[in-house]
Design a protein around this nucleic acid. Sequence first.
DNA 1: GCCATTACTTACAATTTTGTGTGCTGCACA
DNA 2: TGTGCAGCACACAAAATTGTAAGTAATGGC
Lengths: 133, 133
Amino acid sequence: MAKRKITSTNSINRDNLIDFCGMVYAVDLLGGRWKLLILYKLEQRILRFSELKKKLPGISDRMLTLHLQELEQHGLLIRTVYAEVPPRVDYQLTDSARLLIPIWQQLEQWGLQHRSVMEQVEAEPVEEAGNRN
Amino acid sequence: MAKRKITSTNSINRDNLIDFCGMVYAVDLLGGRWKLLILYKLEQRILRFSELKKKLPGISDRMLTLHLQELEQHGLLIRTVYAEVPPRVDYQLTDSARLLIPIWQQLEQWGLQHRSVMEQVEAEPVEEAGNRN
DNA sequence: GCCATTACTTACAATTTTGTGTGCTGCACA
DNA sequence: TGTGCAGCACACAAAATTGTAAGTAATGGC
Protein backbone atom coordinates (compact mmCIF):
# COMPACT_ATOMS: atom_id res chain seq x y z
CA MET A 1 0.00 0.00 0.00
CA ALA A 2 2.80 2.34 0.85
CA LYS A 3 5.85 1.73 -1.27
CA ARG A 4 5.47 0.42 -4.78
CA LYS A 5 7.83 -0.70 -7.45
CA ILE A 6 6.53 1.45 -10.22
CA THR A 7 7.97 -0.68 -12.99
CA SER A 8 6.09 -3.84 -12.09
CA THR A 9 3.21 -5.07 -14.19
CA ASN A 10 1.19 -5.12 -11.03
CA SER A 11 1.73 -1.44 -10.46
CA ILE A 12 1.26 -0.54 -14.11
CA ASN A 13 -2.03 -2.37 -14.27
CA ARG A 14 -3.17 -0.62 -11.15
CA ASP A 15 -2.28 2.79 -12.46
CA ASN A 16 -3.92 2.15 -15.81
CA LEU A 17 -7.14 1.04 -14.20
CA ILE A 18 -7.18 3.95 -11.81
CA ASP A 19 -6.73 6.43 -14.63
CA PHE A 20 -9.30 4.70 -16.71
CA CYS A 21 -12.11 4.44 -14.22
CA GLY A 22 -13.39 6.53 -11.33
CA MET A 23 -14.83 3.48 -9.67
CA VAL A 24 -11.51 1.69 -9.51
CA TYR A 25 -9.89 4.87 -8.29
CA ALA A 26 -12.46 5.11 -5.50
CA VAL A 27 -12.04 1.52 -4.43
CA ASP A 28 -8.30 1.97 -4.49
CA LEU A 29 -8.55 4.81 -1.98
CA LEU A 30 -10.85 2.84 0.27
CA GLY A 31 -9.41 -0.59 -0.18
CA GLY A 32 -7.18 -1.14 2.84
CA ARG A 33 -8.10 -3.56 5.57
CA TRP A 34 -9.33 -0.87 7.97
CA LYS A 35 -9.93 2.20 5.85
CA LEU A 36 -13.67 2.10 5.36
CA LEU A 37 -14.11 1.30 9.01
CA ILE A 38 -11.96 4.23 10.08
CA LEU A 39 -14.01 6.57 7.95
CA TYR A 40 -17.20 5.05 9.27
CA LYS A 41 -16.15 5.59 12.88
CA LEU A 42 -15.47 9.22 12.04
CA GLU A 43 -18.89 9.67 10.53
CA GLN A 44 -20.44 10.73 13.82
CA ARG A 45 -17.69 12.83 15.33
CA ILE A 46 -14.07 13.81 15.48
CA LEU A 47 -11.89 11.21 17.16
CA ARG A 48 -8.35 11.16 18.32
CA PHE A 49 -5.83 8.45 17.59
CA SER A 50 -6.35 6.58 20.83
CA GLU A 51 -10.12 6.71 20.52
CA LEU A 52 -9.97 5.26 17.03
CA LYS A 53 -7.72 2.55 18.29
CA LYS A 54 -10.23 1.56 20.95
CA LYS A 55 -12.98 1.44 18.37
CA LEU A 56 -11.03 -0.84 16.07
CA PRO A 57 -10.26 -3.96 18.04
CA GLY A 58 -7.32 -5.84 16.63
CA ILE A 59 -5.64 -2.95 14.85
CA SER A 60 -2.01 -2.19 15.63
CA ASP A 61 -0.50 1.26 16.09
CA ARG A 62 1.35 0.87 12.86
CA MET A 63 -1.64 -0.10 10.78
CA LEU A 64 -3.72 2.70 12.19
CA THR A 65 -0.95 5.19 11.51
CA LEU A 66 -0.43 3.96 7.96
CA HIS A 67 -4.08 4.04 7.04
CA LEU A 68 -4.64 7.43 8.60
CA GLN A 69 -1.71 8.86 6.70
CA GLU A 70 -2.95 7.54 3.41
CA LEU A 71 -6.49 8.68 4.03
CA GLU A 72 -5.14 12.13 4.79
CA GLN A 73 -2.97 12.17 1.69
CA HIS A 74 -5.93 11.15 -0.40
CA GLY A 75 -8.03 13.98 0.92
CA LEU A 76 -10.46 11.90 2.94
CA LEU A 77 -9.64 13.16 6.39
CA ILE A 78 -8.15 16.12 8.18
CA ARG A 79 -5.48 15.69 10.80
CA THR A 80 -5.17 18.25 13.56
CA VAL A 81 -2.15 18.30 15.86
CA TYR A 82 -2.28 20.07 19.22
CA ALA A 83 0.99 21.25 20.73
CA GLU A 84 0.57 19.40 24.00
CA VAL A 85 2.45 16.80 25.94
CA PRO A 86 1.59 14.01 25.78
CA PRO A 87 0.72 14.55 22.14
CA ARG A 88 -2.83 14.98 21.00
CA VAL A 89 -3.97 14.51 17.42
CA ASP A 90 -7.44 14.26 16.09
CA TYR A 91 -9.06 13.29 12.84
CA GLN A 92 -12.21 14.30 11.02
CA LEU A 93 -13.75 13.64 7.65
CA THR A 94 -13.29 16.06 4.78
CA ASP A 95 -16.31 17.33 2.86
CA SER A 96 -15.43 15.01 0.04
CA ALA A 97 -15.39 12.04 2.39
CA ARG A 98 -18.79 13.06 3.74
CA LEU A 99 -20.19 12.69 0.24
CA LEU A 100 -19.30 9.03 0.53
CA ILE A 101 -21.52 8.44 3.55
CA PRO A 102 -24.71 7.60 1.67
CA ILE A 103 -22.74 5.34 -0.61
CA TRP A 104 -21.19 3.29 2.15
CA GLN A 105 -24.55 3.08 3.86
CA GLN A 106 -25.96 1.50 0.74
CA LEU A 107 -22.97 -0.78 0.56
CA GLU A 108 -23.60 -1.81 4.15
CA GLN A 109 -27.23 -2.60 3.32
CA TRP A 110 -26.30 -4.51 0.22
CA GLY A 111 -23.65 -6.46 2.10
CA LEU A 112 -26.05 -7.58 4.82
CA GLN A 113 -28.68 -8.53 2.29
CA HIS A 114 -26.29 -10.36 0.02
CA ARG A 115 -24.85 -12.27 2.92
CA SER A 116 -28.25 -13.50 3.97
CA VAL A 117 -28.98 -14.53 0.39
CA MET A 118 -25.70 -16.42 0.31
CA GLU A 119 -26.47 -18.20 3.55
CA GLN A 120 -29.81 -19.36 2.19
CA VAL A 121 -28.22 -20.64 -0.99
CA GLU A 122 -25.62 -22.56 0.96
CA ALA A 123 -28.31 -24.14 3.09
CA GLU A 124 -30.21 -25.41 0.06
CA PRO A 125 -29.44 -28.73 -1.59
CA VAL A 126 -27.11 -28.19 -4.51
CA GLU A 127 -28.85 -28.65 -7.84
CA GLU A 128 -26.51 -27.29 -10.50
CA ALA A 129 -29.56 -26.07 -12.36
CA GLY A 130 -27.66 -23.26 -14.06
CA ASN A 131 -25.41 -25.31 -16.31
CA ARG A 132 -26.75 -26.53 -19.58
CA ASN A 133 -24.13 -28.97 -20.77
CA MET B 1 -7.09 -14.05 -2.44
CA ALA B 2 -7.44 -17.72 -3.01
CA LYS B 3 -5.64 -19.70 -0.34
CA ARG B 4 -5.31 -18.35 3.15
CA LYS B 5 -3.56 -19.44 6.26
CA ILE B 6 -6.50 -19.28 8.57
CA THR B 7 -4.45 -19.03 11.73
CA SER B 8 -2.70 -15.79 10.83
CA THR B 9 -3.59 -12.54 12.53
CA ASN B 10 -4.08 -11.12 9.09
CA SER B 11 -6.73 -13.66 8.28
CA ILE B 12 -8.35 -13.46 11.70
CA ASN B 13 -8.66 -9.71 11.50
CA ARG B 14 -10.18 -10.01 8.09
CA ASP B 15 -12.74 -12.54 9.21
CA ASN B 16 -13.65 -10.56 12.28
CA LEU B 17 -14.22 -7.41 10.29
CA ILE B 18 -16.24 -9.23 7.67
CA ASP B 19 -18.50 -10.77 10.30
CA PHE B 20 -18.83 -7.49 12.06
CA CYS B 21 -19.75 -5.25 9.18
CA GLY B 22 -21.69 -5.64 5.95
CA MET B 23 -19.70 -2.87 4.36
CA VAL B 24 -16.38 -4.58 4.90
CA TYR B 25 -17.91 -7.81 3.68
CA ALA B 26 -19.06 -6.07 0.52
CA VAL B 27 -15.68 -4.50 -0.16
CA ASP B 28 -14.03 -7.82 0.47
CA LEU B 29 -16.09 -9.43 -2.28
CA LEU B 30 -15.37 -6.62 -4.70
CA GLY B 31 -11.83 -5.82 -3.70
CA GLY B 32 -9.68 -7.62 -6.26
CA ARG B 33 -7.77 -5.73 -8.89
CA TRP B 34 -10.24 -6.45 -11.69
CA LYS B 35 -13.42 -7.52 -9.97
CA LEU B 36 -15.47 -4.36 -10.10
CA LEU B 37 -14.45 -3.86 -13.69
CA ILE B 38 -15.50 -7.38 -14.63
CA LEU B 39 -18.90 -6.81 -13.08
CA TYR B 40 -19.15 -3.46 -14.77
CA LYS B 41 -18.44 -4.95 -18.18
CA LEU B 42 -21.18 -7.48 -17.57
CA GLU B 43 -23.68 -4.79 -16.69
CA GLN B 44 -24.87 -4.43 -20.28
CA ARG B 45 -24.82 -8.00 -21.46
CA ILE B 46 -23.62 -11.54 -21.10
CA LEU B 47 -20.02 -12.02 -22.15
CA ARG B 48 -17.85 -15.00 -22.70
CA PHE B 49 -14.38 -15.46 -21.34
CA SER B 50 -12.58 -14.27 -24.44
CA GLU B 51 -14.79 -11.21 -24.78
CA LEU B 52 -14.11 -10.20 -21.22
CA LYS B 53 -10.44 -10.64 -21.84
CA LYS B 54 -10.55 -8.26 -24.77
CA LYS B 55 -12.38 -5.69 -22.70
CA LEU B 56 -9.83 -5.80 -19.91
CA PRO B 57 -6.53 -4.85 -21.46
CA GLY B 58 -3.60 -6.09 -19.42
CA ILE B 59 -5.34 -8.93 -17.65
CA SER B 60 -3.86 -12.42 -17.89
CA ASP B 61 -5.81 -15.62 -18.38
CA ARG B 62 -5.01 -16.66 -14.87
CA MET B 63 -6.19 -13.45 -13.22
CA LEU B 64 -9.38 -13.45 -15.19
CA THR B 65 -10.03 -17.08 -14.29
CA LEU B 66 -9.32 -16.49 -10.61
CA HIS B 67 -11.54 -13.45 -10.31
CA LEU B 68 -14.35 -15.06 -12.25
CA GLN B 69 -14.24 -18.10 -10.02
CA GLU B 70 -14.39 -16.05 -6.88
CA LEU B 71 -17.16 -13.85 -8.16
CA GLU B 72 -19.11 -16.96 -9.00
CA GLN B 73 -18.46 -18.49 -5.58
CA HIS B 74 -19.60 -15.30 -3.94
CA GLY B 75 -22.86 -15.28 -5.83
CA LEU B 76 -22.14 -12.30 -8.03
CA LEU B 77 -22.17 -13.99 -11.39
CA ILE B 78 -23.46 -17.05 -13.15
CA ARG B 79 -21.21 -19.22 -15.25
CA THR B 80 -22.69 -21.19 -18.12
CA VAL B 81 -20.68 -23.89 -19.86
CA TYR B 82 -21.62 -25.08 -23.35
CA ALA B 83 -20.51 -28.55 -24.38
CA GLU B 84 -18.74 -27.47 -27.52
CA VAL B 85 -15.28 -27.70 -28.92
CA PRO B 86 -13.49 -25.40 -28.63
CA PRO B 87 -15.03 -24.69 -25.22
CA ARG B 88 -17.51 -21.90 -24.73
CA VAL B 89 -18.31 -20.39 -21.37
CA ASP B 90 -20.22 -17.28 -20.61
CA TYR B 91 -20.87 -15.11 -17.62
CA GLN B 92 -23.74 -12.94 -16.47
CA LEU B 93 -24.60 -10.99 -13.36
CA THR B 94 -26.81 -12.46 -10.68
CA ASP B 95 -29.81 -10.53 -9.41
CA SER B 96 -27.89 -9.69 -6.29
CA ALA B 97 -25.05 -8.25 -8.32
CA ARG B 98 -27.52 -6.16 -10.30
CA LEU B 99 -28.54 -4.48 -7.07
CA LEU B 100 -25.01 -3.18 -6.90
CA ILE B 101 -25.24 -1.31 -10.17
CA PRO B 102 -26.60 1.96 -8.77
CA ILE B 103 -24.02 1.81 -6.00
CA TRP B 104 -21.07 1.47 -8.29
CA GLN B 105 -22.43 4.17 -10.52
CA GLN B 106 -22.41 6.50 -7.53
CA LEU B 107 -18.94 5.34 -6.68
CA GLU B 108 -17.86 6.12 -10.21
CA GLN B 109 -19.32 9.63 -9.94
CA TRP B 110 -17.75 10.21 -6.56
CA GLY B 111 -14.39 8.97 -7.82
CA LEU B 112 -14.34 11.34 -10.77
CA GLN B 113 -15.41 14.25 -8.64
CA HIS B 114 -12.97 13.50 -5.85
CA ARG B 115 -10.14 13.14 -8.29
CA SER B 116 -10.80 16.53 -9.78
CA VAL B 117 -10.94 18.04 -6.28
CA MET B 118 -7.62 16.41 -5.50
CA GLU B 119 -6.03 17.74 -8.64
CA GLN B 120 -7.11 21.28 -7.78
CA VAL B 121 -5.71 20.95 -4.27
CA GLU B 122 -2.40 19.72 -5.58
CA ALA B 123 -2.20 22.61 -7.99
CA GLU B 124 -2.66 25.17 -5.21
CA PRO B 125 0.25 26.54 -3.17
CA VAL B 126 0.60 24.56 0.05
CA GLU B 127 -0.57 26.53 3.06
CA GLU B 128 -0.89 24.04 5.91
CA ALA B 129 -3.88 26.01 7.10
CA GLY B 130 -5.46 23.01 8.81
CA ASN B 131 -2.92 22.50 11.58
CA ARG B 132 -3.13 24.66 14.66
CA ASN B 133 0.09 23.93 16.52
C1' DG C 1 15.29 10.80 39.42
C1' DC C 2 11.73 7.50 37.72
C1' DC C 3 7.81 6.40 35.44
C1' DA C 4 3.50 6.85 32.72
C1' DT C 5 1.47 9.10 28.93
C1' DT C 6 0.39 9.57 23.44
C1' DA C 7 1.15 9.36 18.82
C1' DC C 8 3.90 8.01 16.36
C1' DT C 9 8.73 5.65 13.69
C1' DT C 10 11.84 2.03 12.40
C1' DA C 11 13.44 -2.57 11.09
C1' DC C 12 11.82 -6.77 10.28
C1' DA C 13 8.84 -10.94 9.27
C1' DA C 14 4.62 -13.21 7.70
C1' DT C 15 0.88 -13.43 4.66
C1' DT C 16 -1.67 -12.46 0.62
C1' DT C 17 -2.25 -10.92 -4.01
C1' DT C 18 -0.75 -10.55 -8.58
C1' DG C 19 1.67 -12.02 -12.60
C1' DT C 20 4.52 -15.47 -15.95
C1' DG C 21 5.11 -19.49 -18.48
C1' DT C 22 3.84 -23.93 -19.75
C1' DG C 23 0.61 -27.55 -20.89
C1' DC C 24 -3.97 -29.81 -21.56
C1' DT C 25 -8.44 -30.99 -23.94
C1' DG C 26 -10.72 -32.60 -28.34
C1' DC C 27 -12.28 -31.25 -32.72
C1' DA C 28 -11.82 -28.70 -37.32
C1' DC C 29 -9.25 -27.47 -41.08
C1' DA C 30 -5.01 -27.58 -44.02
C1' DT D 1 0.58 -34.86 -39.47
C1' DG D 2 0.30 -30.44 -37.91
C1' DT D 3 -1.81 -26.15 -36.12
C1' DG D 4 -5.20 -23.32 -33.95
C1' DC D 5 -8.92 -22.65 -30.90
C1' DA D 6 -10.96 -21.48 -25.71
C1' DG D 7 -10.90 -21.85 -21.20
C1' DC D 8 -8.74 -23.21 -18.08
C1' DA D 9 -4.81 -25.82 -14.40
C1' DC D 10 -0.29 -26.01 -12.56
C1' DA D 11 4.22 -24.60 -10.57
C1' DC D 12 6.63 -20.83 -9.81
C1' DA D 13 8.18 -15.90 -9.02
C1' DA D 14 7.44 -11.12 -7.84
C1' DA D 15 5.21 -7.57 -5.47
C1' DA D 16 2.13 -5.58 -2.16
C1' DT D 17 -0.13 -5.60 2.24
C1' DT D 18 -0.38 -6.63 6.98
C1' DG D 19 1.49 -7.52 11.42
C1' DT D 20 5.28 -7.61 15.50
C1' DA D 21 8.43 -5.74 18.48
C1' DA D 22 11.03 -2.34 19.76
C1' DG D 23 12.00 2.17 20.23
C1' DT D 24 11.27 8.01 20.57
C1' DA D 25 9.78 12.79 22.39
C1' DA D 26 8.63 16.16 26.18
C1' DT D 27 6.10 16.87 30.30
C1' DG D 28 3.72 16.12 34.78
C1' DG D 29 3.12 13.49 39.08
C1' DC D 30 5.38 10.90 42.66
